[in-house]
Design a protein around this nucleic acid. Structure first.
Ligand SMILES: [Mn+2]
Ligand SMILES: [Mn+2]
Ligand SMILES: [Zn+2]
Ligand SMILES: [Zn+2]
Lengths: 138, 138
DNA sequence: GGCAAAGATTGGACTTTGTCTAATTCATGG
DNA sequence: CCATGAATTAGACAAAGTCCAATCTTTGCC
């Protein structure tokens, strides 16, 4: 939940370090993702990217989110069957999901200890461990 | 992973105990879910329910899965943004997900200990905790 | 059993999220 | 400035799931 403020140069640099050509649209999308530290769905990213000037298409938003995810800039959070959330924080951490409101918040990795992690079968690796704590009113 | 074999009477009873009228289609779907202890997506349930005789529609499969879920007979597993898996095992337990093959297997609750569970804010309750261990070839 | 009311099922239209494609636009470096 | 490769785009498409109005079953009651 660091509220780091990235300059345009920072973002250009970030994309370049991940082997991504820093186009206008990609920078706008990166700005949307990294300026706030929220968990956004694609439709929100599209809306926010076009808030000032409409210049980014739906196809580009999806292309870019998938690209950023493949290059390890962002991470998907699968918590709602209706849409994928994108998380600008790729450090290991977990999630608290309010099933009533759809609000998704972070749980720091240190705050939650898991013991007894299964050893992956030979020839397989553990890609990640997601913990989702679902909460609800009442 | 108990391979309990339910008779038709058992299933009628199970549905009645959950306040569900045991119709032909619901019994067939319950049979599909409880005779094998797998994690099935809706399209698989539809295919399996109609294997012997085609008598159950897509709408009924979705209606019934949602009903069974609401009444606590089955549980959803959200692990793949493309489809929901239905789990006939509603006891607390966790999941191992093979992202290459889509195979989903159980991790017994006792085998995985979680410490530091966040306390839900006042007026909220923890509905459940899902742990998904994602594994992949290589 | 027979009947009516309540409840369940159904085909198909619809919605939503996401992907794909072929055409266009853009960036770049020589 | 131009050629070339890369990125963007509109809109068609796909898949999962929901909704609806018409029809069919089930069930409680006589
Ligand atoms: Mn912006
Ligand atoms: Mn069957
Ligand atoms: Zn997060
Ligand atoms: Zn399971």
């Amino acid at each position: 939940m660091k509220a780091t403020s990235y300059t345009r140069e920072d973002l250009v640099d970030l994309l370049r370090r991940h082997g991504i050509a820093p186009t206008h649209q990609r920078l706008e999308i990166a700005h949307v993702l990294f300026s706030r530290c929220e968990h956004l769905a694609a439709d929100r990213v599209l809306a926010l990217a076009n808030e000032r000037f409409a210049e980014t298409s739906k196809a580009t938003v999806y292309n870019t989110l998938n690209l950023f995810r493949d290059r390890g800039l962002i991470r998907e959070v699968i918590v709602d069957p209706k849409r994928v959330f994108y998380d600008p924080n790729t450090e290991p951490h977990h999630h608290l999901y309010n099933v009533d409101t759809g609000e998704l918040t972070d749980i720091a990795a240190e705050d939650l200890r898991i013991s007894g992690m299964p050893v992956p079968p030979p020839g397989m690796v553990t890609e990640g461990v997601d913990v989702i704590v679902r909460i609800r009113a009442l």
